[in-house]
């Protein structure tokens, strides 16, 4: 059973068996513009909820990527270094950034489901 949740910083986390796959939303990629470079965390790195987990760079600017949960990085998407534009073309699919072993399920309680996130971005 997978479910997908969203942060107010426009990251998504798709949760399956205690592991979260994290990326940025379609709203985020539109705001970023053409993505030209992605910096990912290292496998084994220990992330803190709300802490920096990577960097997304468009032609214009660099933006920090925050982890929506605390936990250990168990996998990173190396396809993004060769083809960072995937973030623009398939943000919720091929352009996932990393997988994190969720340390504390309570971290998920502050995140939004898809309907709540869609309402949230309508108000921005």
């Amino acid at each position: 059973m997978t479910k997908i949740l969203f942060s107010e910083d426009h990251e998504y986390i798709r949760i399956e068996n205690g592991v979260g796959t994290v990326g940025v939303t379609d709203f985020a990629q539109k705001a970023l513009g053409d993505v030209v470079y992605v910096e990912l965390p290292k496998i084994g790195a220990s992330l803190t909820k709300g802490g920096q987990a990577g960097v997304v760079e468009s032609v214009k600017s660099a933006s920090e990527l925050y982890s929506p949960v605390s936990g250990e990085v168990v996998e990173i998407n190396s396809a993004l270094s060769g083809d960072p534009a995937l973030v623009n073309t398939d943000p919720l699919g091929k352009a996932w950034f990393f997988k994190v072993k969720i340390a504390n399920e309570n971290d998920l309680s502050g995140l939004k489901d898809e309907a709540a996130y869609n309402d949230y971005i309508k108000g921005l």
């Binding site: 513009g33 053409d34 030209v36 468009s58 032609v59 214009k60």
Partner: peptide, 11 residues
């Protein structure tokens, strides 16, 4: 305008 819909900085 920083960029235009359907184009973007790269294009």
């Amino acid at each position: 305008p920083v960029q235009y819909d359907g184009m973007g900085v790269l294009k």
